[in-house]
C-alpha cells in the first residue's frame, strides 16, 4: 500500500429496498467515495437521503445491490467469512443512540471487552488492563467500569461506545450522528474527544451527520447527499463557503445561525424532499431547485469534477454564483 491509495473506496454503490407493497425505496443510487488514511470525510444530508444505509454498507452490515466497497484494496463482497471477520477489526462504528447501542445487561467493562475477546487480543490479564486503559482514554473513571449503561449519563454512555469502537485499534471509524442524541452542553465534550482520539491514533473518520455546524468543525472533506446521491463533494471549507450545487446552498442557508442580528428574510428552500419511492425524473432536486432548466427534467446530472478535488452533480454548476440566486 502506498500513501496515495485510499483506506476505503466505495464504487458505484446501489441499494434498493422493496417495500411491502411492491414498491422500491431507492435508498442509495450510484454513490462513489473514498477515504484516505487519517482523513475525516463528512457525509451530510437530511433524513432519508441514504447516508445511514451507505454507512451500513461500508460497515459490511448490509450488502450493496451493485457496486463494491474496497477496504485497503480488497472487495468486502468477495471476502470469505473469516476474512470478513478479520477485516471488521479495522472498521468500527459509533452509533447515534448511545443507550440503544449498549446492551442494557452488560457492564461497561464487559462491553469494552467484547471486541477484545472476539479477536483474542492479548492474554485475559492484558485485556483487563486494556479495558481500563480505554475507559480512561475516553474519560471514564475506573470505578465506573462495573456500572451498567443505565447508571451512566448520556455523555458517558457515548464515551463508552467510543471506547468499544477503539478496542480493536481500527483504521476507520464510521460515526453515525454520534452527538445528535446528546445534550447540547455535552456535545462539545464528545466532539473534542473524537477529534483528539482521531489525531492521536491516526484514525480515518466517516462522520455521518445532518449538523452542518459540527461537520464544519470536524471534517477535512464533505460529501452532501440528496435522495440517494452525492450532489456535491469537496474540501469542507470550500464547499461550505462557496457551494456549487443549489441544494448545498439552500441547506446552508437553512441552518439557523447564532446571530440574532443577521436573520433570514424567508425560508431558502420551498417544499419537502420527495419520497425515495417515487423519484422525480432527471435531477432529483429539480422540483425544489430555484435554477432548474429543461435539461434537468430529463437527464440526471453526473457528479463531475469542476475544479480539482471538487465534484458537483448539477447541469448548471459554475454558470451562476449561487449566493446571488439564493438571496433573490
Amino acid at each position: 500500500m502506498t500513501d496515495t491509495s485510499p483506506l476505503l473506496a466505495a464504487e458505484n454503490l446501489v441499494r434498493h429496498f422493496p417495500t411491502g407493497k411492491g414498491q422500491i425505496v431507492h435508498a442509495v443510487n450510484d454513490v462513489s467515495l473514498s477515504i484516505a488514511p487519517g482523513e475525516t470525510l463528512a457525509l451530510v444530508g437530511e433524513s432519508g437521503c441514504g447516508k445511514s444505509t451507505l454507512g451500513r454498507m461500508i460497515m459490511a452490515l448490509d450488502r450493496p445491490d451493485k457496486g463494491s466497497v474496497r477496504l485497503l484494496g480488497k472487495d468486502l463482497a468477495r471476502m470469505g467469512r473469516r476474512e470478513l471477520h478479520s477485516a471488521r477489526r479495522s472498521v468500527q462504528m459509533i452509533f447515534q443512540d448511545p443507550s440503544a447501542s449498549l446492551d442494557p445487561r452488560w457492564s461497561a467493562e464487559a462491553i469494552v471487552r467484547e471486541p477484545l475477546d472476539n479477536y483474542r487480543i492479548g492474554t485475559p490479564a492484558e485485556r483487563r488492563d486494556r479495558v481500563l486503559y480505554l475507559l480512561e482514554k475516553v474519560g471514564l473513571r475506573p470505578d465506573q467500569a462495573k456500572r451498567f449503561p443505565h447508571e451512566l449519563s448520556g455523555g458517558q454512555r457515548q464515551r463508552l461506545g467510543i471506547a468499544r469502537a477503539l478496542a480493536t485499534r481500527p483504521r476507520l471509524i464510521v460515526a453515525d450522528e454520534p452527538v445528535s442524541a446528546l445534550d447540547v452542553s455535552i456535545r462539545a465534550q464528545v466532539i473534542n474527544l473524537l477529534c483528539d482520539l482521531r489525531d492521536e491514533m491516526e484514525l480515518s473518520l466517516l462522520f455521518i451527520s445532518h449538523d452542518i455546524g459540527v461537520v464544519s468543525h470536524i471534517s477535512d472533506r464533505i460529501a452532501v447527499m440528496y435522495l440517494g446521491r452525492i450532489v456535491e463533494e469537496g474540501e469542507t471549507a470550500t464547499v461550505l463557503n462557496a457551494p456549487q450545487h443549489p441544494y448545498t446552498a439552500g441547506l446552508l442557508e437553512s441552518v439557523p445561525r447564532p446571530r440574532p442580528s443577521q436573520r433570514r428574510q424567508r425560508a431558502p428552500l420551498e417544499g419537502d424532499p420527495p419520497s425515495p419511492i417515487t423519484l422525480p425524473s432527471g435531477c432529483a432536486f429539480r422540483p425544489r431547485c430555484p435554477i432548474a432548466v429543461d435539461l434537468c427534467s430529463h437527464s440526471v446530472p453526473p457528479l463531475a469534477a469542476t475544479v480539482p478535488g471538487r465534484r458537483t452533480a448539477c447541469h448548471r454548476a459554475g454558470e451562476t454564483t449561487l449566493q446571488e440566486t439564493s438571496h433573490v
Binding site: F95, D97, A100, S101, L102, N118, G161
Partner: peptide
C-alpha cells in the same frame, strides 16, 4: 433490530 445487536456484529461477535 436494536442497535446493540448491530454493534455486537460490528465488533466481530459470532
Amino acid at each position: 433490530e436494536l442497535p446493540f445487536i448491530t454493534a455486537a456484529v460490528s465488533v466481530g461477535s459470532s
